[in-house]
Amino acid sequence: MKIAVMGAGAVGCYYGAMLARAGHDVTLIGRPAHVDAVNRDGLLLEFGGAQQYIEMNASSDASAIAGAGLVLFCVKSTDTNDAGAQIKPFLAPDTIVMSLQNGVDNAERLSAVIGLPVIPTVVYVATSMEGPGHVKHHGRGELVIGTSPQSEKVAQTLRPAHIPVEISENAEGALWAKMILNCAYNALSAISQMPYGALVQGEGIWDVMRNAVDECLTVAKGCGVTVPGDVWGAIKKIAETMPGQYSSTAQDLARGKTSEIDFLNGYIVRKGAELGIPTPTNLALHAMTKLRERRE
């Protein structure tokens, strides 16, 4: 299959690399320095303690998406509308589009822009960009995707590439579960510039995280969302399974980039205000992250 990755950051590059390794024709759409490195040398993937250069196409122009049967949409939540408008002219009526993004409303927002169904996708992977054309995998890699007429075809494409896929009828709840995890970790990792394992050893951190999570769950209930699984258990496990991982928000701030915090803790604050639900911990985490973002 011809596959395009719109937003060739750490997440997009990892899944693009896995699909290219499995024999698919993958094109990355990203920033010029990254594109130049990939076109010159291939994408360097660090995975399982080994390094491998993977040949694939790369472009900084959205027109390179033309002809793709599957698009992995991996841009930051702040860029959803603009990036959606860029790719719209090059999508066919039967193009499968997946939103591999943080936050809970990106698939809906993207669908409104491009005029096509978008499969909401929850991403559980730890990756980082180590430089132009160089992505490093730190752990996990599974996806939870929403139910649609195209979901089984997507799963059959991804699984042979060693990408675990679960099809869920409660994709909205799964997206909320991932966002709550992000609300617990991302701001704190960004403010402290510490990885998860060291972060949770700080005095009072578990209490702060617990307060933030309780607020998120209350807001989710107010929105009529059923959040699946043991949310707090999953959050505690992250520090054990990804101790060396920095949050995507921390990585953004370290590079002087705008973060997605408005679509994480900021989203909880806005929804809480609409519902009359106090969210003081998320408000503080959002405000402190915005200050750090502004300084960077």
Rank of each mutant, 00 (worst) to 15 (best):
I180V: 13
P93V: 15
A155C: 13
M98Q: 04
Q251F: 00
L283E: 09
V113M: 03
A239K: 14
V35Q: 02
G42T: 10
A85V: 06
E296H: 05
C74M: 01
L188Y: 08
A10D: 02
H138S: 09
K237A: 11
M209F: 12
N265T: 13
G48W: 03
G9D: 00
H134D: 03
G131T: 07
N170R: 08
I54Y: 02
P149N: 04
I235G: 08
I180W: 03
N39M: 09
V269A: 11
Q52Y: 11
G42F: 06
V11L: 11
G229E: 04
D36Q: 13
P243A: 10
P132W: 05
G84V: 08
D82V: 12
V122N: 01
A8D: 00
V11F: 01
C13M: 15
G276R: 12
A234C: 11
E46K: 12
H137Q: 05
Q156R: 14
C183Q: 01
L217S: 04
M18L: 14
A8L: 02
L116V: 09
G244P: 00
A33H: 09
L283F: 01
Q251H: 01
Y124I: 10
W206T: 15
L116C: 05
A50M: 07
R292Y: 05
Y15H: 07
D25F: 14
A22F: 08
L143A: 09
K236S: 14
A234T: 12
E169H: 09
M98K: 02
V144Q: 05
M129S: 10
N170E: 10
K136I: 11
Q156D: 05
I261W: 06
A126M: 03
I277T: 14
Q150F: 07
H137I: 08
L291Q: 10
D36E: 13
A4C: 03
C183N: 02
C183Y: 00
I277E: 05
L264W: 00
I238S: 07
Y53V: 10
P280F: 12
K178Y: 09
A4D: 02
N265Y: 01
L253K: 00
G139Y: 07
V225G: 03
N106Q: 05
A37V: 14
G204C: 11
H34G: 10
V5Q: 01
G48D: 09
E108I: 15
N106H: 02
Y53F: 08
R270G: 02
I277A: 14
H137S: 08
Q193I: 09
F47V: 15
A62D: 01
I119F: 06
E172Y: 06
G233M: 13
A250M: 11
G139T: 13
N282M: 13
N211S: 15
V122Y: 02
A66D: 03
E240P: 11
Y53M: 12
R292F: 05
P117Y: 08
T95G: 03
A198L: 15
M194H: 05
R255S: 01
Y14A: 06
E203F: 13
D82P: 04
S189G: 02
M6A: 14
A66E: 07
M98G: 01
L217E: 03
S128D: 04
L188P: 06
E274T: 15
T249G: 07
L291N: 04
A190T: 04
G84R: 04
A184L: 11
S148F: 11
